[in-house]
Computed example of a mutant assay.
Amino acid sequence: MTQAIDAGASLADLVAGGGVVVLSGAGLSTESGIPDYRGETGRRRRAEPMTYQAFVGGEAARRRYWARSHLGWRHIARAAPNDGHRAVAELQARGLVDGIITQNVDGLHQAAGAREVIELHGGLDRVLCLSCGERTPRDRLDRRLREANPGWDAQADMINPDGDAVLDDDQVESFRVVPCERCGGPLKPDVIFFGENVPPPRVRDCYALTERAGVLLVLGSSLTVMSGLRFVRRAAGAGIPVVIVNRGPTRGDDLARLNLDLPLGSALTGLVAALP
């Protein structure tokens, strides 16, 4: 306990200077009922998720994804911001946080009141047509899928951070997918799948924000994939202090000036309380 208190004081000292850029991952949303990918051990909880190549490669893969995601979206849409999200929004309102980069696709930073959040991997609340490029609200697609699948009453044993529910094959086979209303093309959630690249302009914006930071504060990310780790490496290489608050080890631990293994909600609430 003493170590945690001392570490918390160091965190407050670093954040009090302002210029903080937050890089958040799935661990920040676990207290909202959305599981992370790896847990405290760093070991993956599930098999590999849907890849971009599989999704665009065939109708069967898209049916499997949309059946599972249609059910999982109900869980994501009901999730509410937790103490960690609210603390980040409060730090931004106080002028201490200059920017937020999130690897999450759940929209909970914005729901807590945060502004100008860069969604590195996109957002589940939007849908993209792969043919004409039109973006539409997820709620609209949800209504269309409900109408196209009356009586579909599948139940999921588990919901994943990307809104993907685990379903039996027979539940998937009976599901009907709907096309783009404008052109009839295939629809995809406006998120970055595994095997798909983050748009270069978005990456450049994240690098620019990182390079202007006084502190890079990593929250709830194991930094296992390069998508987030590259910003930690960029900050550390530029001499910008990196602070990591996460349950369990991360791939960026050796680059951090301060590393806290603490529950995110209570740690960030305590941080806000410790600041003037």
Rank of each mutant, 00 (worst) to 15 (best):
residue 47 A to D: 15
residue 127 V to T: 09
residue 62 R to T: 03
residue 237 G to S: 09
residue 52 Y to C: 03
residue 231 F to C: 07
residue 236 A to T: 09
residue 111 A to L: 12
residue 273 A to K: 14
residue 120 L to Q: 08
residue 58 G to D: 01
residue 207 Y to D: 12
residue 128 L to C: 02
residue 172 V to R: 05
residue 69 S to F: 14
residue 73 W to S: 00
residue 226 M to E: 14
residue 30 T to I: 15
residue 181 E to Q: 15
residue 275 L to M: 12
residue 47 A to Q: 13
residue 157 D to A: 13
residue 108 L to T: 00
residue 87 A to K: 08
residue 63 R to L: 02
residue 65 Y to M: 07
residue 219 L to D: 04
residue 98 D to R: 15
residue 27 G to E: 10
residue 74 R to Q: 14
residue 1 M to Y: 11
residue 268 L to A: 09
residue 139 D to K: 01
residue 95 G to P: 07
residue 118 I to R: 04
residue 116 E to V: 01
residue 191 V to C: 10
residue 193 F to K: 07
residue 146 R to M: 06
residue 269 T to Q: 14
residue 61 A to D: 10
residue 128 L to D: 11
residue 229 L to D: 08
residue 164 D to F: 03
residue 60 A to M: 01
residue 181 E to P: 00
residue 58 G to T: 01
residue 232 V to G: 02
residue 71 L to K: 06
residue 98 D to S: 14
residue 250 T to V: 13
residue 86 R to Y: 07
residue 103 Q to L: 14
residue 27 G to F: 10
residue 105 V to P: 00
residue 212 R to W: 00
residue 54 A to L: 06
residue 192 I to S: 08
residue 20 V to C: 05
residue 176 R to E: 13
residue 115 R to E: 13
residue 151 G to K: 06
residue 67 A to P: 03
residue 272 V to H: 02
residue 55 F to A: 05
residue 189 P to T: 09
residue 47 A to L: 11
residue 5 I to R: 15
residue 55 F to T: 00
residue 40 E to M: 10
residue 60 A to S: 14
residue 222 S to C: 09
residue 225 V to N: 13
residue 25 G to C: 12
residue 77 A to Q: 09
residue 60 A to Y: 01
residue 216 L to H: 01
